[in-house]
């Protein structure tokens, strides 16, 4: 990301921070969900965009985070903040195991292993009724207020700020990560893993680490979703969500961190707008994806920054 875009991002965050003062409650609900999905998509970008680890099972992170925070809030009376971060941490720890096994393979086999783990969790969520509620899922998840003045975060607007803070925090973390030497190794794996190994890096450890971080952040998104929606159900673990989040990353522009957040917001807005215009929204949705692949391979972010750069070039070469 070029330095010129940094002020723009700060403005965007400020606008988002001021949004509750200008938007009706209904729009705030949509915006909150868009930010949660944005966090989810950005977490996948670490694996997909920076390391070329194509996960077909990222719903595993989202669903695990959602079920974990939902269960903690329902059954332990733990305050909201602890439950959310505890669930994210748990997802990250589980992901170390998943990452260890999935990175035995590469390429399409890696994708399919991640899918297998997600579907395994999906199957478990159906059958382990005493914990997951089976096909009904967990319902009536409360936002338990905490002891040290965290109670403010449990209101509708307060929760929005919690989500925004998580997204900004996670973005800064990912941004620092991809600019660090660690991130350089990840890009090395993306471009040419054999060379990176030859340079003396144990690439498998790096891959497991990035899987763990990506799942933990994806788990954070899921952990926020459960108290946001008040429920967690098996659909949060279904492969369709894994496919959708991958599309969000690609539509937004992979390997950019910001792009996938835009992709998620675009996805949500389109789904919402199209479904209010027409019954057959999925039809137009599909056509839009196909059009994106054909005409905008760099995604929304690529379109936007390409336009910016072109404008700058034109100005530079102008009279």
């Amino acid at each position: 990301m070029s330095a010129a875009l940094r002020p723009l991002l700060i403005v965007v965050v400020l606008v988002l921070a001021l949004a509750p003062f200008g938007l009706p409650p209904f729009a705030m609900t949509l915006l909150t969900e868009a930010l949660i999905l944005g966090l989810f998509a950005m977490s996948l970008d670490l694996m997909f965009g920076y390391t070329r680890l194509v996960s077909f099972g990222h719903a595993a992170a989202y669903g695990l985070g959602a079920y974990a925070s939902g269960w903690l809030l329902l059954h332990t009376g733990m305050p909201l903040l602890f439950a959310v971060f505890g669930a994210a941490l748990l997802t990250g720890v589980v992901a170390i195991g998943i990452g260890w096994m999935c990175t035995l393979a590469t390429g399409v086999s890696f994708s399919m292993l991640t899918l297998a783990f997600a579907q395994l969790l999906y199957a478990i969520s159906f059958k382990w009724t005493s914990v997951t509620g089976g096909s009904d899922g967990l319902a009536g998840i409360p936002r338990t207020p905490g002891p040290f003045g965290f109670a403010a975060l449990t209101s509708k607007i307060g929760f929005y700020y919690l989500v925004l803070a998580c997204l900004v925090g996670a973005f800064l973390l990912c941004f620092a990560l991809v600019r660090s030497p660690f991130g350089a190794v990840l890009r090395g794996i993306r471009e040419n893993e054999a060379k990176t190994i030859a340079l003396g890096y144990n690439t498998r450890l790096y891959k497991i680490a990035v899987v763990a971080v990506a799942y933990a952040l994806g788990g954070l998104a899921g952990a926020l979703y459960a108290p946001f929606a008040g429920f967690a159900n098996t659909e949060l673990l279904f492969w369709l969500l894994s496919g959708q989040v991958l599309i969000m990353v690609i539509v937004g522009g992979s390997g950019t961190l910001v792009g996938p957040i835009l992709g998620a917001a675009f996805f949500m807005l389109m789904e919402h707008q199209l479904s209010s215009w027409t019954e057959a929204w999925a039809l137009y949705f599909g056509l839009i994806f196909i059009a994106f692949v054909l005409f905008a391979p760099q995604g929304i972010w690529g379109l936007a920054t390409g336009r910016l750069q072109m404008g700058r070039l034109r100005r530079a070469s102008g009279p």
Binding site: F48, V54, V108, G243, L246, I247, I250, V251, S254, E279, A280, W281, A282, L283, F285, G286, L287, I288, F289, I290, F292, V293, L294, P297
Partner: peptide, 24 residues
């Protein structure tokens, strides 16, 4: 000439279009 994600997205799009067309 493009990479695998392009195909993923285009066939995912086709799946949505066909699924919806069948429903309609």
């Amino acid at each position: 000439r493009r990479d695998a994600p392009a195909f993923l997205m285009v066939t995912f799009g086709l799946a949505l279009v066909v699924g919806e067309a069948v429903r309609l």
